[in-house]
């Protein structure tokens, strides 16, 4: 039988899916073991048990000076920035996308501008944002918006244009105004796409968030990682990295579940 036609059975499939994770863990454990055998003080690859202890401490024990658990405060601050940035970008891209996709005048005015804007490397704007909006929350949120909104806007506009002409004509013969077409024909059909856009741009948003926090911040997951780097605290860094990965995965999973639940009619395309 050809390789392209042989499919794994269910238990084998599960095993295969788990395999890469197990391999990475095993390689890490062995490497860590080897290094610690040569030098017990080695900090580069802490033993899995050490990471576990550190993670437990980070999640449960409050800091002595402030009496607060830093990891949760970092998580709260970072999630606030991430979610407000992405939410603003999503709302912006939705409104602009519908306007550009539906109205020829808007398309002529904005589509080239948005295309050029999406070429600007957002991180290069970071110093300008810090100068304009200070080192507080605003500059970080604006960076995420600038980094994700233009690409999302272009995609939304494209989706609106791709709605079959027949549907738009049909709506007009039923007496729909431009507003009604936007609200009742276009909007419901591109909302599933908006959610998948948000899912895609969350990765980019994390990138900008951690970059901004690394450069100037007093709190946040990215800030903490770059802070403890100075002490070579690999156990803390790894804990934070795994935690961020987990958060990103959960956000993605929640958005997918929401999309499935809310847009039953579009199930096939999700």
């Amino acid at each position: 039988m050809r390789l392209i036609n042989s499919k794994p059975s269910r238990p084998v499939a599960l095993l295969l899916a788990a395999l890469p994770f197990v391999v990475v863990c095993v390689i890490y454990s062995i490497s860590s073991e080897l290094r610690l055998a040569v030098n017990p003080q080695d900090r580069l690859l802490p033993a899995p048990a050490t990471i576990w202890d550190t993670a437990f401490r980070l999640f449960t024990e409050p800091e002595r000076r402030s009496g607060q658990i830093l990891l949760w405060r970092d998580t709260g601050a970072s999630l606030f920035r991430l979610l407000s940035g992405v939410a603003i970008a999503a709302a912006l891209s939705l409104v602009l996308g519908v306007l550009i996709g539906l109205l020829p005048y808007m398309r002529r005015t904005l589509s080239d501008f948005v295309a050029v804007l999406s070429m600007v490397p957002p991180l290069a704007l970071l110093p300008i944002l810090f100068i304009m909006f200070g080192l507080g929350e605003l500059s970080k949120i604006v960076l995420i918006v600038i980094g994700t909104a233009p690409v999302m806007t272009r995609d939304m506009a494209q989706r609106v244009i791709e709605i079959p002409r027949e549907q738009i004509i049909k709506a007009q013969t039923l007496g729909a105004s431009s507003l009604v077409i936007a609200l009742r024909v276009v909007l419901p059909q591109i909302l599933p796409r908006l959610i998948s856009n948000v899912r895609l741009s969350l990765g980019t948003a994390w990138l900008f968030l951690i970059a901004a926090e690394a450069v100037a911040s007093e709190l946040g997951l990215g800030y903490r990682i770059f802070l403890v780097r100075r002490f070579l605290a690999m156990d803390i860094i790894l804990t934070y990295v795994i935690w961020i990965t987990l958060l990103a995965f959960l956000l993605d999973w929640m958005l997918r579940a929401l999309s499935r639940r809310a847009f039953r009619w579009a199930e096939a395309s999700l």
Partner: peptide, 20 residues
């Protein structure tokens, strides 16, 4: 100058709204 309620239309495809 544009389609209105005086004219009903049925196309070969895409004549109904998939989300309703």
């Amino acid at each position: 100058r544009e389609p209105d309620r005086e004219r009903g239309v049925v196309f070969q495809r895409y004549s109904v709204f998939p989300h309703l």
